[in-house]
């Protein structure tokens, strides 16, 4: 019997029988095996597991950054294996907001320009883009840091800019890859508070990869991965 992976009735994300493997010479290296997972709309899910357990790979598959070797991934009713590269890029722009462990801001751009990046792919005019950028930055508490470059911001502030960039298009799903992994306790706590608020008050569905039990405690549910499979608990 596989561990419970959610209720399919209101699932935003459905992962069905997904396998992911890489061919290394004659050897096939399995990263994910026969994996099923469902995430409800508005849910805050934490993915935990040791390094190499497949957490980030699963996040990449859900975010359309990679394709499964077998099985299907459906997000917001869209089966991603049916989309070509261009369709997948457009789908990501519309539905997904990414938050990375190391923020991944473009150092040459100001905070506002960084947040604006996903909006460049929309048909919004300059004034509308600016309005949205200001709103997103004010939601993360950085409305006063529009013109600052990443180097002028603390780690916590950079991560909040990263979150603003992820929410600026009002995506269906936020995918966070160890968002507090590079932050001190206080900054990490602030980021978790922010994610919690986005989930509770703005209805965002969030999947967060983390190693930190303290972070996972803030989620509605925690799924453990071990050697590419979902397990009840991580073996000692």
């Amino acid at each position: 019997m596989k561990p419970s992976a959610g209720d399919s009735s209101s699932a935003l994300v459905q992962v069905r029988g997904v396998e992911k493997y890489y061919q290394r010479g004659t050897e096939r290296v399995h990263v994910l095996e026969e994996l099923d997972l469902e995430v409800k709309r508005g849910e805050f899910l934490a993915l935990m597991g040791p390094s190499g357990s497949g957490k980030s790979t699963l996040l990449n598959l859900i975010g359309g950054l990679d394709r499964p070797s077998r099985g299907s991934v459906t997000v917001a009713g869209e089966r991603m294996e049916r989309l070509d590269e261009r369709g997948l890029a457009a789908w990501r722009a519309r539905h997904i907001g990414f938050v990375f462990q190391f923020y991944n801001l473009l150092p040459a751009l100001t905070a506002a320009r960084n947040v604006e990046l996903p909006l460049l792919l929309t048909l919004l005019g300059r004034a509308d883009r600016r309005r949205r950028v200001e709103l997103a930055l004010s939601i993360v508490g950085l409305g006063h840091r529009l013109k600052h470059h990443p180097a002028q911001l603390s780690g916590g502030e950079q991560q909040r800019v990263g979150i603003a960039r992820a929410i600026v298009t009002d995506p269906t799903l936020l995918l966070c890859d160890e968002p507090t992994g590079d932050l001190d306790r206080t900054s990490g706590e602030a980021v978790l508070d922010l994610l919690h608020t986005l989930c509770r008050q703005h209805g965002k569905t969030i999947i967060m990869v983390t190693h930190d039990p303290h972070a996972s405690a803030r989620a509605d549910r925690t799924v453990f991965l071990y050697k590419g499979r979902i397990v009840d608990a991580i073996p000692a």
Binding site: R86, F100, L117, L121
Partner: peptide, 16 residues
């Protein structure tokens, strides 16, 4: 490299 990856992650196509 990393920044180009971010651009693609937020929705930029390969051609863009």
């Amino acid at each position: 490299t990393e920044e180009l990856g971010v651009l693609k992650a937020v929705g930029f196509t390969h051609e863009q």
